[in-house]
Design a binder for these strands. Sequence first.
DNA 1: GATGAATGAGCCTTCATTCAT
DNA 2: CATGAATGAAGGCTCATTCAT
Lengths: 221, 221, 221, 221
Amino acid sequence: MSQAAEGRPGTKARNRRVAGADPEKRRQILDGAQAIFHAQGFDAASMNEIAAAAGVSKGTLYVYFEDKEHLFVALIEREREKHRQHMDDALAEHPDLSQALAGFGVNLVRLLTDPFSLSAHRIVLGVAERMPDLGRAFFERGPLLGGQRLAAFLNDRISAGDVAIEDTTLAAGQFIDLCQSTLLRPRLFNAERRPPTDAEITHVVDAAVAMFLARYARPVG
Amino acid sequence: MSQAAEGRPGTKARNRRVAGADPEKRRQILDGAQAIFHAQGFDAASMNEIAAAAGVSKGTLYVYFEDKEHLFVALIEREREKHRQHMDDALAEHPDLSQALAGFGVNLVRLLTDPFSLSAHRIVLGVAERMPDLGRAFFERGPLLGGQRLAAFLNDRISAGDVAIEDTTLAAGQFIDLCQSTLLRPRLFNAERRPPTDAEITHVVDAAVAMFLARYARPVG
Amino acid sequence: MSQAAEGRPGTKARNRRVAGADPEKRRQILDGAQAIFHAQGFDAASMNEIAAAAGVSKGTLYVYFEDKEHLFVALIEREREKHRQHMDDALAEHPDLSQALAGFGVNLVRLLTDPFSLSAHRIVLGVAERMPDLGRAFFERGPLLGGQRLAAFLNDRISAGDVAIEDTTLAAGQFIDLCQSTLLRPRLFNAERRPPTDAEITHVVDAAVAMFLARYARPVG
Amino acid sequence: MSQAAEGRPGTKARNRRVAGADPEKRRQILDGAQAIFHAQGFDAASMNEIAAAAGVSKGTLYVYFEDKEHLFVALIEREREKHRQHMDDALAEHPDLSQALAGFGVNLVRLLTDPFSLSAHRIVLGVAERMPDLGRAFFERGPLLGGQRLAAFLNDRISAGDVAIEDTTLAAGQFIDLCQSTLLRPRLFNAERRPPTDAEITHVVDAAVAMFLARYARPVG
DNA sequence: GATGAATGAGCCTTCATTCAT
DNA sequence: CATGAATGAAGGCTCATTCAT
């Protein structure tokens, strides 16, 4: 019987029971945690609220996650995962350098100014003093990784003769920061709640590309 | 009324006192609050610890500050005040454009990567969701103001014919972000605890100036 | 009723089963419960741990035992049963009075200072306030019964003219307590973890016999 | 004003305030703790109930005692203190050996069969597995100490030529245990709730003295 | 019958805030 | 005004017990 069920597509996938292994319920809990953590921050969020938001009992939270901190870390990991998938291949699309950079920049800004992303940043930064490992992990697998990818892309373009850059790590960081200028900071501080319009994003990213190329583009001819 | 009281004989000598008006004790409390808030973050800091660190009683805290949040806001304001004084005149010192920018940049990076500053940033960002007013105030009187000053400086230089810039607000933001590239973010996330060396700062700021001028410097002609 | 069910065809083969009737599994559960209760005490022992130690699921525990308390009582009963079997015939072995008493005493002390026995005592005493029935049952079927047997034995010896005792119940109690002097109490309080050596036991029991006979032995002649 | 109050006898003694130092409130809390711990045992007693029984808030409990365990230990210490005072000088009163022993025995039995004492014994034994230090402390400062005092007394009487004893430690233990025979155990197990009558106590203690002297008294001659 | 995920009451403890002294 | 003992709501977490599978 269970053999038949196993193979059937569309069947609810909870054949084998393992402690805290129902992925559906796990997702449900993370959804509730997301709602509460993002609205309240780490400390102000209570496990009670999270359980209510997730539609499970408090005890169930502890079946799926060791404690509040582990739940929070799992949530952050899930959100980063989404981001990574979103950013992949942003650079490879356009053969033209300025278009590739612009595409990358627009993608990046959209990502970073997304309310969830902003909120996650705020929370991680808020606990970074007490939970340095989380801060480091978030940084290394997020911003640092993004910078490394862009740096690798720039190295390719150096080889291709498109640009002349000595410190590609710095150059990548520069471009990334330029793309966010005037857009990210006010939102991170919650001084501006409205996401940037496409026009605003384009304006800033175009300016970033222009500046970047003014400095690093190899003179043609 | 308080004037009348003043003259009355037999009154205790310290009659003109207003609630929480002893500036020395106020400073003392803020010093204690700084130590605890920076070490623990907003939520994890307890009023008990702060009172102990300040060497006053818990009750006294509430004479000088309405509640924990107001105490925290007052602390942040005091720290911002220090920063402002530090940044003033950084731009006016050098008549030479690139030197003025470099001086501003170095000052800025030193300021932002100072452990206290990093810690204040983290805490404010951590509570920005729940305390948007604090986030906004911190942004407006800090980063935004800094940008506006640099923008004003750039406008002067436009008039002087040194640079050609259309959007000075954006340009100021760009320069500020370029100065921090690769230096601020790892420290904000606590992935790097060591403050940047002078050489590192110079390297990044020089690159920022170079890029900025490559884009905006008016060709001497 | 269960007879009718028995004959019905198509019924699952294991129909005569009554709730919690598999004696093997029952033993298995009690073994696990023994390990956990003795190591942790009644309150600190968790049904989870017991289920794990027994190698059954938590639900199964409740098939065999109504609740935690009933499980504990069943465990205590089982352990008492072992003791009873051990003590039986200890008195009948030796025709000589002092040898019979000494044999009984040594047996008794060995039994009472056994780690399991000590632990069971502690737990039962610890819950005796809340569970008076358990305390009473443990006492009546344990220490009281032992005393009664010894008293009966003494009555026989009175008839035989070996001893002269007015209050045999008291005399039996006295002998039992003398045998434990300085040996049981420190172990019950966990102030001494090492079981008494044979020499220690013999020393105390011999002293008990000597004292007992000094008081009650009929002068020969 | 406070000067006057200070000197006056009968004034409530709370002049200086120290954290958790109001002895009146401390006593009040211990009284509440006694009521609840003795009725429920250590684990089943809740800090909530204790606070209610003591007529203070839950928080106040933690001003006076670090945690549940420390509160419990303090309670046990207080009760032991009462006992010690009660037992002191019990031996010194009578110059006659058998009267001294009988007085000691009666005192001892009254003490040990007091409901509070029984309850304290039960609780300490109940947690002795998990809190061996408490068990050891209770034993050493209680039963062990009592035995040592009696042993010292017996040594005096050996010197005086009243008794001939080789192992006074054992002899002291024997006498103590004889005094409790048939009286303590049923009450410890809660199988008998009625305290022993004076007649019962005298009966058992007299029998203990008789047995003790039959064994150890030096033949007059 | 056996399983173990789910429940939710309840536990110990903390802490911002108040208020009698 | 300064003090710090007292408050009590709320927090994170555990665990005996139930019940759908």
